[in-house]
Amino acid sequence: MNIMLACCAGMSTSLVVGKMEEEAKAQGKDYKIWAVEQGQIESELGNFDVLLLGPQVRHIQRKVTKLVGDKAPVAVIDAAAYGRCDGAAVLKQAEDLVSGE
């Protein structure tokens, strides 16, 4: 699975990406997980199976969902999980979105 995170500058989400990668590896899952700055979303279309937005850019969710269309689910990362850098919780959120739960 390809999981992309997006925020204002791609820096704060990179911390979450690291924790998600650790968790995926611990679960034996070979996922590609990366973070980008919100302006790069359009250039990444087709490269991800799910797009998670940092809570600080939740205001762009409607616009981004329209841009991505039916190519992938788009959601805002749970603020508590994001704040705790809870890689397991954010990974589960991504998996649930892809599986339609």
Rank of each mutant, 00 (worst) to 15 (best):
M1G: 12
I3P: 05
M4S: 11
A6T: 03
C7A: 08
C8K: 14
A9E: 02
G10A: 02
G10F: 00
S12K: 08
S12P: 12
V16T: 11
V17K: 07
G18N: 15
G18C: 12
M20H: 04
E21Q: 15
A26E: 13
G28A: 04
G28V: 05
G28I: 03
D30R: 10
Y31V: 05
Y31F: 10
W34C: 08
A35N: 00
A35K: 00
A35G: 06
A35D: 03
E37P: 13
Q38R: 14
I41G: 12
E42G: 10
S43K: 13
S43E: 15
E44T: 10
L45E: 01
N47C: 12
L51A: 01
Q56K: 02
Q56Y: 01
V57W: 02
T65S: 15
K66A: 15
G69H: 01
D70H: 14
K71W: 05
P73E: 05
A75L: 04
D78V: 00
A81T: 10
Y82E: 06
G83A: 09
G83L: 10
G83E: 09
G87N: 08
A89Y: 03
V90P: 07
K92D: 14
K92A: 14
K92E: 15
L97A: 01
S99H: 13
G100Q: 05
